[in-house]
Design a protein around this nucleic acid. Structure first.
Length: 466
RNA sequence: GGCGCCUUGGCGGAGUAGCUACGCAGCGGUCUGCAAAACCGCGUACACGGGUGCAAAUCCCGUAGGUGCCUCCA
């Protein structure tokens, strides 16, 4: 399977250290508020990677962290901890906030049919590992202590600017953030932040350097190494993380181990709404609840995500979501043909299914080209009008199962119609045979009210959900 | 100010040199008892200006516009 690697800026074949296992670490959510659709786009795209690896014969071992402490309102170690800020907003403790939004997030993964990671470690459960990592860096001379925390000296890591191709001198010229003047370099970042002297934090721990909490970047290094070893096969995350978070992860991890931190970096692009980025301040964040409230299914949302490539900055709009929902209805209409296999002449057959399958496999292993996958599926949509022959039913169901494993659109979960509904269809066939059009149309209307549409073919009617 | 990325038909969105992407919506027509179903056809899409090539949406240069990061972000 080929994937675009940010490290080399090229599309490359995946080369796991211990195939068929592929270790994958993903930067998960900071659980301080409801995720918006932009966040969910990203998690669906991560899921696609996992599903793609499985379909390519690999055995992905996936770890996604839950950031429940230490993520400040600025990556430059300024401002408040997001969890503490969320706590203040809602009049709860940071622990309560973390629990609530973690639960909400995990439920969202299920609702969106996102694969379950093997581990979902929380930063607060790994304070000891993080302290040990700081100790390791301290012994190697990468750290220094100033009044508000323990910092990583980025000038000690010569390759610091390479990953994001940063131009450190020019970048600083326009920096707008006020920094602690005791920092040796503007890019230095906190490994451990001391608790403020004037107030009590909800979340704080003792450490060899003083009471406080871990810096945000540290958790990913500590937890990925604990669960997946010192070198990852794939590290995925949002494109925004390249210049700071991932750059810092590489610096601290490779300084600590002396080994390559991740062999492949997969970055998902952001989406826009009304051609603008999503942000709470612009008031354009949409939630899963908003989508459902407008009558769209989460499967339609998922399909909408798959309609663009994970590396492109794609657009979300309600029109596009409506288009995806319409397209999904066609897919479901085809999926339920498995309940309607008959002796009629049909175009869906083993040969064309295997041809389409080969096309989809090629698109999937070519940097997860989901728009191409959907285009290939169009070949089946185009011939589905003829229905399915009984002899092809098994191979067709296998195909749907395989497709569900890749796309997660719940094709096999589309239920059969009820016996009563089947009876109505039979009665209508009888009426039609007698040229009793009034009766026939009445039965068709009755089924339509139950959400069942009919398409008359030469021999009999094929049903689908409206 | 610095560093990137992008600009494809009404909308969404693949495609990195030569062959209708695809989807949604629209228009015209055909068939069927009728049909919102099906089928056929239509719009001559690649920001603009140069350049390289037998050939460019696809490579190079420039212009315009947009956008991302450096501030919270997935």
């Amino acid at each position: 399977m080929k994937l675009y690697n940010t490290l080399t800026r090229k599309i490359e074949e995946i080369k796991p250290l211990k195939p068929p296992t592929v270790t994958v670490y993903t930067c998960g959510p900071t659980v301080y508020d409801y995720p918006h659709i932009g966040n969910w786009f990203t998690f669906i795209r991560y899921d696609l990677l996992i599903r793609g690896l499985k379909a390519s014969g690999y055995d992905p071992k996936w770890v996604m962290n839950i950031t429940d402490v230490g993520h400040l309102t600025s990556d430059a170690d300024e401002g408040e901890d997001k969890l503490e800020k969320g706590a203040k907003r809602e009049g709860k403790t940071a622990w309560e906030i973390a629990q609530f939004y973690t639960d909400y997030f995990l439920k969202g993964l299920e609702r969106l049919n996102i694969s379950k990671p093997a581990y979902l470690p929380k930063a607060t459960d790994h304070i000891q590992e993080q302290i040990e990592l700081i100790g390791k860096l301290e012994r190697k001379g990468y750290t220094y202590v100033i009044d508000d925390g323990v910092y990583y000296d980025t000038s000690k890591f010569p390759k610091y600017a390479d990953f994001a191709k940063l131009d450190l001198d020019d970048q600083q010229a326009g920096a707008r953030v006020e920094q602690n003047p005791q920092k040796r370099n503007p890019t230095d970042f906190a490994l451990w932040k001391f608790s403020p002297k004037d107030k009590k934090r909800d979340m704080e721990w003792d450490s060899p350097w003083g009471k406080g909490f871990p810096g945000w970047h540290l958790e990913c290094s500590a937890m990925s190494m604990k669960y997946l070893g010192e070198t990852l096969d794939i590290h995925s995350g949002g494109i925004d993380h390249i210049p700071v978070h991932h750059t810092n992860e590489i610096a601290q991890s490779e300084a600590a181990t002396g080994k390559r931190f991740a062999n492949c970096w997969m970055h998902t692009n952001h989406i826009t709404v009304d051609d603008q980025k999503i942000s709470k301040s612009l008031g354009n964040s949409v939630t899963l609840e908003d989508i459902e409230a407008k009558g769209y299914s989460l499967e339609a949302f998922r399909l909408h995500v798959l309609e663009s490539h994970y590396r492109s900055q794609s657009k979300f709009s309600w029109d596009s979501l409506a288009a995806a929902q319409n397209r999904l209805k066609d897919f479901y209409a085809i999926a339920v043909l498995r309940y309607q296999a008959s002796s009629r002449a049909a175009s869906i057959n083993a040969e064309m299914l295997s041809k389409v399958r080969a096309e989809i496999e090629a698109a999937l292993s070519g940097d997860l080209n989901t728009p191409q996958i959907l285009a290939s599926l169009g070949a089946i949509v185009a011939v589905a009008k003829d229905g399915l022959q009984a002899q092809d039913r098994t191979v067709f169901e296998d195909f749907l199962k395989w497709l569900d494993e890749i796309l997660g659109l719940n094709l096999l979960k589309q239920p059969d119609i009820s016996d009563q509904q089947k009876q109505l269809i039979k009665e209508r066939e009888v009426a039609r045979a007698k040229n009793d059009w009034a009766k026939s149309d009445e039965l068709r209307d009755q089924l339509a009210k139950q959400g069942i549409g009919l398409r008359d073919t030469g021999s009999s009617a094929i049903w689908h959900r409206l």
